[in-house]
Design a binder for these strands. Structure first.
Lengths: 139, 139
DNA sequence: TACTTTGGTTCGTGCCACGAACTTTACTGG
DNA sequence: CCAGTAAAGTTCGTGGCACGAACCAAAGTA
């Protein structure tokens, strides 16, 4: 109650702003946010489907389709596991790495504009607070 | 460059966590995030389609469909404007208001958990910084 | 060798959102 | 008063996204 009408709701609003800007940046790189997310997850390290499912918070069919579409664009690739013949690992193609890195850099450069109204000191504080968010998402 | 690998990217990650939690809360109220967003925008004040298009960052067809689906669920309603016979205004039904308020409260209650790891003082600081985000989104 | 579990895919459904084309009404200028 | 243009929304077709249910094949186990 002391939260008043809403820290939570303000957070939602903020996340919408971020998502909108992010989607715009992704679009500039000819990516959807979902594909961008997949690409960045796989860019520096191969991942199994199950792992990705976990990391991206998707059910299996959703992920399967996402990988399909992203693979069709030549950004990622399924490779068979020699450990387990039914499993496959998703890796990034050279093109995918390139695009992923460019996107990453662009996001770092353009997205913080959202907080352009904040003095540098405040931004630093914010940065630190936000950085502390748990890497392991609460499902 | 002093941002290191990424304030921007951390923000994106944060926004994903928020969106995921938010989607979960919306689902608990039998809503999609898009419908929830529409509902909350209209809940306390009628809005024209153009205005909504602006506020939600959607093109006209997308909004039209969203209103269709939400109207079909009895949460909002199109009413004709007497000013302009081609325009219509979207208002919330009583059910919509009820659902919207419940959602709003639930979001306020459950979403800040994401920052459960922060001491109260830090959370307060964060709250203040976040609250300062411009209401007018940068298109 | 049978039984169960697990990794992924396919299928059908529904939401979401876009551009293009269209209809209706409002607003001009002559 | 009657064009012609502009604006508000809708419809249509397309495509991405993501879910549950059903399925197949390989792996593990009794």
């Amino acid at each position: 109650m002391t939260d008043g009408p809403g820290f939570g709701n303000t957070l939602v609003y903020l996340s919408l702003l971020i998502q909108r800007r992010y989607a715009q940046i992704c679009a500039d790189h000819d990516l959807t946010t979902a594909q961008a997310q997949l690409l960045c997850t796989v860019k520096d390290q191969p991942r199994g489907m199950g792992e990705l499912s976990q990391l991206l918070g998707l059910a299996k069919p959703g992920l399967s389709g996402l990988v399909d579409r992203t693979e069709r664009r030549g950004l990622v690739q399924r490779v068979a596991s020699d450990r387990d013949r039914r499993a496959c690992t998703v890796i990034s193609t050279p093109l995918g790495k390139e695009v992923g890195n460019a996107l990453y850099a662009d996001v770092a450069a353009r997205l913080p504009d959202i907080f352009g109204h904040l003095p540098a000191a405040d931004r630093r504080v914010l940065e630190e607070l936000v950085a502390g968010v748990p890497t392991d998402c609460g499902d």
